[in-house]
Design a protein around this nucleic acid. Structure first.
Lengths: 340, 340
DNA sequence: TTGAAAGCGTTACCAA
DNA sequence: TTGGTAACGCTTTCAA
């Protein structure tokens, strides 16, 4: 691999000049610049990012910290990040965290200038200590999905989302609506709790009493969804609609409903949350949150800070939208009367 | 951030000695070593990976090139990679490619010592030129899912997989079996073609004639799956079983079947391929391929080469297995007689 | 507008 | 077993 020295020699100039050409310094005559450029492309020279980083005091890597990379929603966000980072010259390093200590250690990593020039925290919360670490490092870090005090980022209004899902069902005439929630992950991140608040608020708004027996929470694996949902239909007054805390959870609910010989939406309506690609495939009515867009925006914010544009950076709230598909319909019995 | 020089000074030794301690050189006395170690932890010193990389001539990053990161199967593999890379000291850089030129450019990137110390090619094929590039670079590159001549890696026998799926249906008594295939991606990678070969071989083995009208290929989006599958049931002799080229495709098929008022597996059996997490949730019978494990193995192979263990490295074939769930059952009519 | 040279923080070689 | 120092390839400052 040719070095900047080789280029300088071949072009008959000093390395300083080559460096200036590389970094678009205006202090280079046009003739010299074109001569150097010619040699660069002739030699297929590319500056060493290691040497450049050492000299500049920072790497060209943006570190993304993500819990459970396999979750479809994380991937969607990451996809946005990668697309936006595309031609930026920055590479993305992916750090997976599965526990509190790992998170701390990864946060420490991404604020080290020799590791990363900036960081992205996806669907994560942070302790005051960790926040202090990031702020002190004075390194751009943005939070994608999940508000972290002191950091710019984007997130959604989960309370509003839960309300929208519930109100959709309410508007269709449902009055017995169950809530199937997720459990908090290992890192204490739990959007489901806020969505539940929205569910509660929506019911209150329609003067529908909250019934504890209609509220189920558990991990979204199939067996649990089965149990969770199953119990719901053993009730004296079973739900005609179900708000699930995520699309994944909703899929489990749908499978459980069907396994009991019932039909969606004929016997029961189901609303999800996220609008994963699969939700479209399976016709799930859901609250869409801009997953891909959150990644694009987060990456853009980081890039802006890296360019020195510290202005206009803030915490932005992304819009939500109910996408009505085929898993919701008006209740097919007189249950609307009960709750009224 | 403290440098190696700070540590040396505080410990009253030269930087060379600190470096030796850092790199577990045996040529350090126990007393010196413990003294240096004490200072290191007192100062919370961590060597600059940039400086270390420049000196060593290579970074501590492993670059993974992946098409469409959002595909669940890629994520599963990446998850395995990340888990295996965990405490190795290597970071993972994620490169997404969406076209031939991008692939070439990314391959060029990962074999550059200032960018990556090794590479991982996931679900990708490579042109002879690209292979030459990698071999010449003498840098560890392993192929995960997809055999690339001259590179170590792991893959599955797609022909066998297609055969297994089809034979499962055949064994249940099905004789009119459709094949719903995926289209080749933008990068010319198409495991579906080999799976189709397996389908064909299985039918031949049972003396079931191949019927062109039972073979459909198209992108796995919902609308297309609907059309694709729909046409199948307009046939004079519709299929009692469907082999899908992927779980994703199978989900589309199932949705399409249901949208026509038919039941799975009562009216038609469906077999997928991959065994995504969701396949378990939805009770899909499928051919399981070790996705997570392929990532673990690929990462392990790279790490081995990085450690200088060039031996024992080869192309390994991962096992396949039919996971029978609830979408397959014997045909409920006499159609078995037709094909015999 | 340009060249020379000092750093950036390591590793590794050469003496001691 | 150690310390001193060249080298890694770049950016940037200082003179010219």
């Amino acid at each position: 691999m040719p070095t900047i020295f080789d280029v300088a020699q071949a072009a008959g100039v000093g390395v300083g000049t080559v460096s200036r050409v590389l970094n678009d310094s205006p202090a280079v005559s046009d003739s010299t610049r074109s001569r150097v450029l010619a040699v660069i492309s002739a030699l297929d020279y590319r500056p060493s990012s290691l040497a450049r980083g050492l000299s500049l005091g920072t790497s060209n890597i943006i570190g993304a910290v993500v819990p459970t990379v396999t979750h479809p929603s994380s991937m969607e966000r990451l996809h946005g990040v990668l697309d936006e980072l595309g031609g930026s010259g920055y590479d993305l390093a992916l750090y997976q965290v599965e526990g509190e200590e790992q998170r701390s250690s990864r946060i420490r990593d991404i604020v080290r200038p020799d590791r990363c020039s900036a960081g992205l925290l996806v669907s994560l919360r942070a302790t005051p200590d960790e926040i202090f670490l990031m702020v002190r490092a004075k390194r751009p870090v943005v939070a994608i999905d999940g508000y972290i005090e002191g950091l710019p980022g984007c997130h959604i209004d989960n309370v509003a989302g839960g309300r929208m899902a519930t109100e959709h069902l309410l508007a269709l005439g449902h009055r017995v609506i169950a809530f199937v929630g997720d459990v908090e992950d290992d890192l204490g991140f739990n959007p489901g709790a806020a969505r539940f608040e929205g569910y509660r608020a929506a019911l209150r708004g329609c003067h529908v009493p909250l019934r504890d027996d209609l509220i189920k929470t558990g991990p979204s694996c199939r067996e649990r969804a089965d149990q969770l949902t199953g119990h719901l239909f053993d009730l004296a007054e079973p739900p005609t609609g179900i708000v699930a805390t995520s699309d994944t959870q909703a899929f489990g609910v749908m499978a459980a409903v069907r396994s009991r010989g019932m039909e969606v939406p004929t016997d029961v309506s189901v609303v999800g949350f996220d609008d994963l690609e699969l939700a479209g495939h399976l016709g799930l009515t859901t609250v869409r949150q801009p997953l891909y867009e959150s990644g694009v925006l987060g990456a853009r914010m980081v890039l802006q800070q890296l360019d020195g544009h510290r202005d206009g950076l803030d915490v932005v709230e992304l819009p939500l939208e109910v996408v009505v598909r085929e898993t919701t319909a008006p209740p097919n019995n007189g249950s609307a009367l009960y709750g009224a």
